[in-house]
Design a protein around this nucleic acid. Structure first.
Lengths: 192, 192
DNA sequence: TTGACAGGTGGACGATTGTCCACCTATACT
DNA sequence: AGTATAGGTGGACAATCGTCCACCTGTCAA
């Protein structure tokens, strides 16, 4: 039987109960009456990399529990089911968030960054406490207002630049404080 | 002591070991010599909603283990640390992925959707098997090539529309197969 | 001074845990 | 016919599990 299909009830259990099953729970999940059957099967899956175990012997979720399949580029399109197995996978959370404690999400209003592909209603993931570089998109506090712009640095000069011809660069008259650096943009369609 | 700070070693444990600690492990994590101390503290945290338990008594991660803080809009900027507690939080995975089995990620090439805020290099999260509506952005197989475009439907007529004036709408000469519907766009900056 | 109480130690309890052994099939191959 | 093997049953084992009891502090209010 396909190992991935064997994992399905496990993944369901993990999603629903937010923990991995014990060997006995595994047996029930797979319809075995003996724990040994489940144990043996689990060991096979572990040997083949579909599951993992603690040093204490407890089951651990593998990458198959978290990850989304990656399918190359749009041009390449969808592979046939046979090829699909080979596709790489990725953990979304890990991909997007390096430092959970310093990461925040904000909703974007206004279209001043639309040429950078950041539209009103988009969510931006920002991280505090990282060094802002020239060219980064940042959340800035400038002259008593908050804004999302490109950060520009030329020598001692620092200013903000929108990504929309209808707006002009902003040169700070009083203070310019970079609160956070944008590390990702997330846009969601079909909200239902 | 701040409950959130109490949770930190727990969250670290959970991230590193991919499971929740037992009561004894909890005690070690918090520097207690007795399991009872950890058990009592855990119950307090559970009563106040910072932790959760199984029906079997096992500890479960709460939302604090997954979620990213949400901070209103960019205009609102960053709240003071005091207000921050009130902020809403969100599970990124749950937010983006409804049906893990049917969700795939593709890298975007080409700039035909740039006016829709989808740039080359962006990642799109797509879902198979959902009904494509007029106006959805879809992965389509049209005349032997894969492409990412707006789907347009007028009565029996179906065609694809780019979001870039330099490109023209595409009317299928042979076949038009919608492989998947774009449910989210993810762009990552500062890849290091 | 007293008493309540939050917060800690140490240890006990039965239940559940991972592991593994003895054994029972089918199936496939020599 | 014989036999190796994959895949299952049932049950044993020590270790660990969650829970809870008895007891020992400090702190703070009456």
């Amino acid at each position: 039987m396909d190992p991935i299909q064997r994992l399905q009830p496990l993944i369901q259990f993990y999603r629903g109960r937010r923990r991995m099953p014990s060997v006995r729970e595994l047996a029930r999940l797979w319809g075995f009456r003996s724990q040994n059957a489940a144990d043996k099967l689990a060991r096979h899956l572990i040997a083949r990399g579909f599951l993992a175990k603690d040093t204490t012997g407890k089951l651990l979720p593998s990458r198959f529990f978290y990850e989304v399949r990656i399918l190359g580029t749009v041009e390449a399109g969808f592979p046939s089911p046979a090829e699909e197995e080979l596709g790489d996978t990725m953990d979304l959370d890990e991909f997007l968030i390096k430092n959970k404690e310093a990461t925040y999400m904000l909703k974007v209003t206004g279209d001043s960054m639309k040429d950078a592909g950041i539209l009103p209603g988009d969510m931006v993931l920002v991280e505090r406490g990282v060094e802002p570089h020239d060219g980064d998109i940042v959340i800035a506090h400038i002259d008593h207002a908050w804004t999302l712009k490109y950060l520009r640095k030329r020598g001692r000069k620092v200013w903000l630049e929108p990504a929309n011809k209808r707006y002009k660069p902003i040169f700070p008259t009083e203070e310019l404080k970079i609160a956070a650096v944008v590390i990702a943009v997330i846009r969601k369609y079909r909200d239902e």
